[in-house]
């Protein structure tokens, strides 16, 4: 068992993304009961922009700010991505290490890890807080269903989709959703700070 833990630790340290700081709490992941409403109950596996395979529950202990997009989108997504960046910038530095910003592709066929990586670079979302994920169409549909995000493919590389940014607490429970576009980020930023300040 200890050996297994070590392996898990090594892998997690190796990830070097927003979850890597969680070494000390990894031992807890195995034993702690996951809350009933937590997204960590979802078994799906995701691939990051760095071609690493992760499960959402590996992000436990972080406050998660999440949005569903697709990289070839010309209209709403750039705005959503800008919103995410704005939120990240408005968040005081001291909280950032406990927050993970996730951008999940609703077009996994097109959005390969390489493409997600290029998208991250282009949008200057390179720091370790940013995580771009893709999975199978089925896992994506399931995840969207949990978030209450609706989407539909309307052409080969064109989707219509809900514009929702979701905030999950450290236990993976949905605590806040910002729907549609807004010019004020106060509510969502203070919500994130509130959740970071809470104990694990």
């Amino acid at each position: 068992m200890k050996k297994l833990m070590m392996v898990v630790l090594v892998i997690l340290v190796g990830l070097q993304s927003c979850n890597s700081k969680k070494e000390e709490s990894n031992t807890k992941i195995e034993t702690e009961v996951i809350s009933e409403l937590s997204v960590f109950n979802l078994p799906s596996e995701w691939t990051t922009q760095d071609n690493k395979h992760i499960e959402i529950k590996e992000l436990k202990g972080n406050v998660l700010v999440m949005v569903m997009i697709y990289t070839s989108c010309k209209t709403a997504c750039p705005r959503l991505v800008a919103d995410m960046r704005q939120i990240e910038q408005l968040l005081p530095e001291k909280y950032k290490s406990d927050v993970c910003f996730l951008l999940i592709s609703i077009d996994p066929k097109t959005d390969t890890p390489e493409r997600l990586k290029a998208f991250a670079i282009k949008n200057k979302m390179m720091s370790k807080q940013w995580l771009f994920l893709q999975s199978t169409e089925e896992n994506t549909r399931e995840f969207a269903a949990v978030l209450g995000v609706n989407y539909k493919k309307i052409a080969p590389i064109d989707f219509s989709h809900s514009n929702i940014i979701s905030v999950f607490n450290k236990k993976g429970e949905l605590v806040f959703q910002q729907e549609g576009f807004t010019t004020s980020y106060d509510t969502i930023v203070s919500k994130i700070i509130g959740e970071v300040s809470k104990a694990n």
């Binding site: 209209t75 709403a76 269903a145 609706n150 539909k152 219509s160 989709h161 809900s162 549609g180 576009f181």
Partner: peptide
């Protein structure tokens, strides 16, 4: 969940 009541504004 592929239909839209609101909150969608791609166009």
């Amino acid at each position: 969940n592929s239909i839209f009541l609101s909150g969608e504004s791609r166009k």
